[in-house]
Design a protein around this nucleic acid. Structure first.
Length: 420
RNA sequence: GGAGGGGUGGCAGAGUCUGGUUGAUUGCGGCGGUCUUGAAAACCGUUGAGGAUUUUUAUCCUCCGGGGGUUCGAAUCCCUCCCCCUCCGCCA
């Protein structure tokens, strides 16, 4: 949600933003609706005031005078009813139109059309060198029986996997390692609900823009979240957060569900692009005053995790055409996957300024001053893809996989994953 | 799933049967002040959110779990949904 003040007093900012992102949103019709809506509100409230005034006097009236007044009010109600109907309809139109407005991007977000215009900020770590041709995670995983992407066809269909044996152990090692690191940094560990109401999806900005990407339950009108960002953000819906408590930092673990609509044929096989995966997500509610500093710190945390796991990656500054509607800025962390000989997205770190806070009505109070909080989120560890990166980067000539140093304490003494 | 009870302002808790000037009594908490070396206590004052008009000042509207209805008028009456509590059933 955007501040209405921008629409009313600086519509050119919004129009420019829509253009920068290559969106098709008609700001002018929004302006027209808003004007009409406000004049209707004025009319309606005038009549209500008249009614309220009359109600005060009616009990004191007697006989014909009273009958007359009541009859008069009946007439007035008919008029009011019509106006209210118009207003309700217009309100609905206006707000569903507004729901498509994007956030205002940060000045440091590069202008661009699509993923090709994203900017490499820097590389971190060393690209691992292999004296042999490295395999991809699918070959490795099947051979070592730590990943089954075949049998899910019988059970669930395409784009599902069974994570098996040391693979499963490695997931819990990752969770333990990362969660401990985050708790040490002051993040509050959370296991949120993964089924949420439609309002949570709208509030976080995933709806209406990306509605086709998510699963809905048949009987209960609940949606399966694509990330813990949704329940973590909506957790404080309709609340005032004391300024002294900010920033509030959560580390949420959840399964994530994505329909991957429109991704036909992309990344088939293995577990790079699946309908279900587990993820540790960081979410921060911040004072607007220092939210951009918080944001850079947040990026540094994911980087620390990836670095400690010994992964080589690059940080991308995502362009206006490739960030989500709620994002003012977004970094992607792309790790090097030797099996693919490509950098692939492992984490993404977004600053949504007050966009989600407005939609979910989350404010802070600092003495008498009150305002919307800023929200930001970042992947801490997307388990599936991180497993892929570990498999491919830690593989040996024999097709074994070594356990990254920091995960060893959680691996029951296993140092290397070998064929059974 | 069955039976019963309940959802009111930051919290507690009246008001609902008997609809009318009640955005709502009261207590606590918060804020400001008096007093005090300071603090506490006491006393005085103040204290919700959102919206429209407006340069300011100010005026007005909406909100008593959500939605709908009855009425000139609803926190109060009716319908419906949701949530919480107690008991029973079922269950990881």
């Amino acid at each position: 949600m955007i501040d209405l003040e921008i629409l009313r007093n600086h519509p050119e900012i919004l129009k420019n933003e829509v253009k920068k992102r290559g969106l098709d949103v008609d700001i002018d019709s929004g302006i027209t609706m808003d004007k009409k809506r406000r004049s209707l509100i004025f009319e309606v409230e005038k009549i209500r005031a008249e009614k309220n005034e009359a109600s005060k006097h009616i009990p004191a009236l007697k006989g014909d005078q009273k009958k007359e007044k009541i009859a008069e009010m009946k007439q007035l109600n008919k008029k009011l009813e019509l106006l209210e109907q118009d207003l309700n309809q217009l309100d609905r139109q206006f707000f569903s139109h507004m729901a498509h407005y994007p956030n205002i991007s940060h000045e440091s977000t590069p202008l661009g059309k699509d993923e090709n215009d994203n900017v490499v900020v820097y590389h971190k770590g060393e690209k691992p060198q292999f004296a042999f041709t490295p395999k991809n995670h699918i070959a490795l995983g099947r051979k070592l029986d730590i990943l089954d992407d075949q049998r899910p066809a019988k059970v669930s269909g395409a784009r599902f996997v069974y994570v098996k044996n040391e693979g499963a152990l490695l997931e819990f090692a990752l969770v333990q390692y990362v969660l401990n690191l985050l708790v040490d940094k002051g993040f509050i560990p959370m296991i949120p609900p993964t089924m949420v109401k439609q309002e949570a999806m709208y509030g976080t900005g995933f709806f209406p823009a990306e509605k086709t990407q998510y699963y809905k339950t048949e009987m209960d009108d609940l949606f399966l979240v694509g990330t813990a960002e949704v329940p973590l953000c909506a957790y404080h819906r309709d609340e005032f957060l004391p300024a002294d408590d900010l920033p509030i930092k959560y580390a949420g673990f959840s399964t994530c569900y994505r329909r991957e609509a429109g991704a036909h044929g992309k990344d088939m096989g293995g577990m790079f692009r699946v309908h279900q995966f587990d993820k540790l997500e960081m979410f921060i509610f911040s004072h607007p005053r220092n939210s951009w500093e918080q944001y850079e710190k947040l990026r540094a945390v994911v980087e620390e995790i990836m670095t400690n796991l010994g992964l080589h990656y690059r940080i991308m500054n995502m362009c206006t055409g490739d960030i989500g509607n709620p994002n003012a800025k977004k970094y992607d962390l792309e790790a090097w996957l030797p099996g693919q000989q490509k950098y692939r997205e492992l984490a993404s770190c977004s600053h949504d300024t007050d966009y989600q806070a407005r939609r979910l009505n989350i404010k802070f109070r600092d003495g008498k001053y009150k305002d919307y909080v800023h929200t930001m989120n970042s992947t801490a560890c997307a388990i599936g893809r991180t497993l892929i990166a570990i498999y491919e980067n830690y593989q040996t000539k024999e097709g074994h996989i070594q356990i990254p140093r920091v995960l060893k304490p959680y691996m029951r003494g296993i140092e290397t994953i070998k064929p059974k």
